[in-house]
């Protein structure tokens, strides 16, 4: 049994929260530069140039690339042979988020209850998903998920007879309805299968895969490519002002489901696609 100290998790989480908000990943920077070459709209090109400049300023000056520094969402892969000493994993993550957001001058964007709407003041609680794995490692995957794109996400319980055409039509509907609100260019995360709650989780999880990396299953990979082409024909473009770059990537995760079901979830990510990963 390997022991991981509570404090170590706190420190790692705090650092991840700041890095995610200050430094846009290389995958996203490459996607911006690629889009700058292919975008047909002059306004669209100018917006992409501004996003590149913005990301450079953020990284250079350690300032958040977006004022919406997001809800801190974690997928934690916990090896069954590892033990956390000194406190609970959830507490450690929340303490790390509190420290990371406060010390990093990141915005507190979480309200305690959805009706009373009083800000918690430290961006906690984080949203934590646990996955148990073999081995004795602890892998922390974090995203700072902005509210604008999250608000335009959706889930639909399709009928099995709707098939791939139905799946595609629904995904295009969500992206079309989101228009400028979700801050395109987007990364579109899709979950297919599972059940009602699992499907939404799959869509979120798909967004943790680096931009440009295709699904291992060639059929799913080809569906990702098809959807990307169709989404970019919608004309929405950067910031919804028209153009050929509506999505920088489409990610799909699939899972087994009930014989009566075909759940599809679409979790939109704005261009501030902030993901970090550490292994302890």
């Amino acid at each position: 049994m390997r022991v991981i100290r509570y404090e170590e998790i706190v420190e790692k989480v705090a650092a991840m929260c700041q890095e995610a908000n200050f430094e846009l990943g290389e995958d996203m920077m490459n996607a911006f530069h690629q889009a700058l070459k292919t975008e047909k709209s002059e306004t669209g090109k100018e917006i992409i140039s501004q996003l590149i400049e913005n990301a450079e300023i953020a990284a250079r000056e350690y300032m958040p690339m977006c004022q919406d520094t997001g809800t801190a969402v974690f997928i934690v892969e916990i090896g069954q042979d590892c033990h956390i000493a000194g406190g609970s994993l959830t507490d450690a993550i929340n303490e790390g988020v509190r420290k990371g957001y406060q010390d990093g001058y990141l915005r507190s964007s979480v309200v305690r209850d959805p009706i009373g709407r009083k800000n918690t003041g430290d961006n906690t609680p984080a949203i934590v998903h646990l996955e148990f794995t073999e081995g004795d490692r602890l892998k922390l995957k974090m995203t700072a998920k902005g509210g604008g794109a999250e608000n335009m996400s959706g889930l639909k319980m399709l009928k099995p007879s709707d098939g791939v055409d139905g799946i595609k039509a629904y995904i295009l509907d969500v992206v079309r309805a989101a228009g400028p609100n979700a801050c395109p260019p987007l990364v579109v995360g899709v979950g297919i299968g599972g059940n009602f709650e699992r499907c939404a989780y799959l869509a979120k999880k798909s967004l943790f895969r680096p931009v440009g990396k295709r699904h291992d299953d060639p059929d799913i990979a080809s569906l990702e490519i098809d959807l990307m082409e169709e989404i970019n024909k919608l004309g929405i473009g950067p910031q919804g002002m028209g153009g050929t770059t509506t999505a920088l990537d489409v990610k799909i995760e699939v899972e087994a489901c009930h014989i009566a079901a075909l759940p599809v979830a679409v979790n939109l990510n704005c261009h501030a696609n902030r993901h970090k990963e550490v292994v302890l």
């Binding site: 996003l51 300023i57 000056e61 958040p64």
Partner: peptide, 13 residues
């Protein structure tokens, strides 16, 4: 008016 969503470091200047 729309400003560029997400260009928040740049806009702050």
């Amino acid at each position: 008016f729309a400003a560029v969503g997400g260009a928040a470091a740049l806009i702050s200047k």
